[in-house]
Simulated assay, not measured.
Amino acid sequence: MKLFYFLSFCLLGFSGCSSDETTTPTVTEKMYYPPLTGTTWETQSMTSLGWNQNAVQPLKDYLIQKNTKSFIILVNGRIVMEEYFNGHDANSVWYWASAGKTLTATLTGIAQQEGKLNINHKVSTYLGTGWTSETAAKEDLITCKHLLSMSSGLDDEYNADLVDPANLIYKADAGTRWAYDNVYVKLQDVVTEATGQTWNTYFNTKLRDKIGMSTNGFWVNTNDGLRIYWSNTRSMARFGLLALNKGKWNGEQILNETFFNEATSTSQNINLGYGYLWWLNGKASYHLPGSQLQFNGSIIPSGPNDMFMALGKNDQKIYVVPSKKMVVIRMGDAADKVNLALSDFDDVLWQKINALFP
């Protein structure tokens, strides 16, 4: 339950479906992938799923109350619910914040499968020495996998948002401490150096265009050295659908399944609820951003145990639930404008979603 407060700091019904062109599938069990271009996206009715339509309005009321701009539920790739609020629509773009970390993990995996890099190699293999303020011996301990798993050992308390060498300071040996910080962004530099392509070019050709994410998406460079992705909500849903299918899109393996399975499994033995820049529900314990405490139980108690998640600042969400063949997307402003010591937004949201199911 305590996750929701800490995540606020991270660089972290059915009648509303607004597909411009939709068709009703005849075989609902088969996975559907929307075309790479155009606005066609098949829908699935709640009635055909046997869902409780009386639970739709309470869910919508909660989303509106909690400053939501857009919300999508996919089942087997088809839109079951698509809602926009507060002037937001299907063409509006919004930031992913730290939910976009999973884009970086995916691009890193693609570069590895192409033989451009190896996540077990030290970061300095690609960036050269002196990319931190550590001694050469300590810096050499940090591999790309440590950046993927948030276990670099770099200080997360002193100017943790900044990723220039002066602010990447030794705290512990790599692999011995889990701490949520922004040093993961150095993986984008690793991919750039390893592939010989700009980050934007590699992202667009290897991921965005492969799954039909809208070309109106873009990366914004921030003053503290980060890149934040902005897109429409359906582009986020497309990425969630790729994740639901373990890196495969309509028969093409965009990201190999071995890497994807690693990315969505516990990546180290400190924070069981963290993979490669993905959060994992249903584990025996978890750690939180900004804390070295261990909390027992699942991150989102009301959420499915097999759910994995991309979580970003101000409650940008991608929830992927393999057991239900479901993807849930939420974009918007912070659920609670006044950040209290505890926030139950995710847990209550999943209580509302669960009420839909028979």
Rank of each mutant, 00 (worst) to 15 (best):
S149P: 08
E139G: 07
T143Y: 05
G87T: 04
E114M: 03
E157N: 05
G115Y: 14
N120P: 11
W94Y: 03
A136G: 00
N86F: 02
H121P: 01
L103V: 14
S151K: 12
A99H: 04
S133G: 11
Y126F: 07
P165N: 02
S151A: 14
S133C: 08
D161H: 13
G87F: 05
G130H: 02
C144I: 04
D161N: 15
Q113L: 14
Q112E: 01
K122M: 09
N118I: 11
Y95D: 05
A97Y: 01
N91V: 01
G153V: 12
T106D: 10
V93A: 04
N159W: 02
V163M: 08
L107W: 10
A136Q: 03
G153S: 14
G100A: 15
L103T: 12
C144Q: 10
T129A: 04
N118H: 08
H146N: 08
W94M: 00
L168G: 12
L103I: 15
G128F: 06
D155K: 04
I142F: 15
T106P: 06
A99N: 08
C144L: 15
V93E: 12
D156F: 02
S124F: 10
T125F: 15
T108G: 02
N159H: 00
N120S: 15
K116S: 09
V163T: 03
G130M: 05
Q112C: 00
G153M: 09
M150P: 06
Y158I: 03
Q112N: 00
K138Y: 10
K138I: 06
V163Y: 01
L141D: 00
N167M: 01
S149F: 01
Y126E: 10
H88T: 14
A90D: 03
A99L: 07
V163C: 08
A111V: 03
G153A: 13
